[in-house]
Design a protein around this nucleic acid. Structure first.
Lengths: 195, 195, 195, 195
DNA sequence: AATGAATGAGCCTTCATTCAT
DNA sequence: TATGAATGAAGGCTCATTCAT
């Protein structure tokens, strides 16, 4: 199963990504996927048995190709903290503007759907990871004297909440790039002194 | 029609609120409402013809009983800015913790649903109002010398983004009251000097 | 009941006539009538308990005010047969063009509906009456030497079939007045010699 | 899809024909068809999505097996006009008596339904075709000296109106075969001299 | 592995009809 | 008489899911 079926799964994921990006999470039916993939109804069931299952893989793949954290873990060893921060902020900006992630709306829908059902570990994990990364950047910057920040832990969390808020606002009623830039700059200045 | 049917509508809203709180927005069917209200299928259609229509009234009622902004507009005339800020933060805290608003998840779902459909004015309006209120509190505090803040407009927006982020996080994977308190305090301190 | 309720019935008939003219027979619901009459649902049921019942009265009233046959029976005593024929043809022309009878489509629909249900006496009665009238006109004309016609009985029937055909055609896909005139003239000439 | 589903469509058409013959057009529901076909609700929707769509195919099939016009176009090349006329009249007689076409009532109902909706091209097309065919037969007969007729165009139209009238009368309140024979004979004699 | 026809449950919506007032 | 809220049956439609091939 593994080799062949894996490439087929990749194909399905690819087509499904477009569907979830366009329709969100709950509105997507197995029929939508079947049609997007130009595959048979029964065929799809050989690989996936619910839209949720498909969505998970869609997100997973998207997360990986949004190489962000992986890439970071390499940079983090070598680079200057200010470069890292710049990079992190740019990544977040892209995410806010959905340039990287057209799935954002679907992700939130899914998060709420799971909350309803009691499970929410995935959403939490994503957020916590981002906070950790940001915190480690700040700490690094403080150590190297690039930044000054009394409470990196708190600062990282607060910044991420604000960023999260912008993501939601952008996903629900839209934000201009200019506005996002201005907000991000303002926030960074508030939470740390950049030398 | 108006008196009697209005009380019936109130009854439906009341029962429906529980349904939306428990199941979010999209999963709720007319049948769910019918059953919660213990009325006939046709009976419900006498008052409402879609879950969306019901949801709007549910939210409207919830907004009014979350007397927040209304109440504020009275206080704002007389009170000290620091009291107003305290009050505002407390309201937001309640909202974040869903103590006031168990509809929060449904509201977000609805916002995404409308975004899908192209309309998003309602969500935007809610956010903008909150920013305006906060901004006016900050300005007042600056004038009275209670606060110090260079850029009230920006500060208000940033604080609301962070609060919005907390709302989402709380709605998707939960936040403890302690955590919320700590975050709110930190944020306020970052964005203004409280004398 | 009789006096008061009669005037109310007349009112209902009047309003219902417009509804049947516009929507045919089967598409009309009790709700349509209720709305057209601006009366309560229960109120209508006090007088009528089905659209069919209403439709019967609607037709009956229409038949009476289309004074045709009644009026004729007076004329028939005195007038010249050629005048009567002229009058008869004019009446039919009006009927074909639905100038007199916007109910025509509804009537046919009803006729087919009843046929389905096995009853058809009403439709037959209407047609037979017309044939009789036409036949008596022809006979009268033959006696007075105005017309010449070997088989008045057959001629009357045939002419009425053609007229009936025109009614249906007019009701289903429309006919111009010019076309109707031309056809009626042609038919009369074929079935009798007008001196 | 084409082969298998076509045979299934044929099956549905066959069963549906009986339903439309028995119940007319408007009274027929998808459920009726589903039950007549002994298939599932969803199954029917695989092939047809409205009773109208089914009815169109029902009529089309009926029209083809009433080989009439097709057959005629072959005969018309070779046969004597008087034979053609005889054939045409016989076909009409069958139609009037609904021996060929138990769908007649449903067809009229459909015609009125479409008129209500503004479309009536189908009904008109059917009638016009019949007129053309009859006219060409008459012209042929005149050319060969079999018939004598001053105005074939008018005569054809008038005859068809009469025939149409008989169809309606037969469909609504019935006509005996004898009566139909007698009327048809009379009409033919009136509109042309048969040598 | 893959197909796609078939199923049946489930939701939506509209009406005729009743009944307490 | 008259009202109109309420009911529930009936029909429409869509999907997830299965299964013979």
């Amino acid at each position: 199963m593994s080799e062949k079926s894996d490439s087929k799964k990749q194909y399905i994921i690819e087509k499904a990504t477009a569907v979830f990006s366009a329709k969100g999470f709950k509105s997507v039916t197995m029929k939508d996927i079947v049609e997007a993939c130009d595959i048979s109804r029964g065929g799809l069931y050989l690989y996936y048995s619910s839209t949720e299952e498909i969505f998970r893989d869609v997100c997973e793949k998207a997360d990986n190709s949004e190489e962000s954290e992986k890439e970071l873990s390499q940079m983090v060893e070598s680079a200057k903290a200010s470069d890292l921060l710049l990079w992190f902020i740019k990544e977040q900006k892209k995410a806010i503007l959905s340039k990287t992630d057209p799935l954002i709306a679907a992700r939130y829908e899914y998060a709420f759907y799971k909350k309803q059902g009691g499970d929410s570990s995935e959403a939490k994990a994503g957020f916590d990871t981002a906070v950790k990364v940001l915190k480690s950047i700040i700490i690094r910057g403080c150590e190297s004297g690039e930044f000054e920040c009394e409470d990196p832990s708190h600062a990282a969390a607060s910044m991420m909440y604000a960023i999260e808020g912008m993501k939601v606002c952008s996903a629900t009623f839209g934000m201009t790039e200019k506005k996002v830039d201005s907000e991000l700059l303002f926030i960074v200045q508030r939470f740390m002194e950049v030398e």
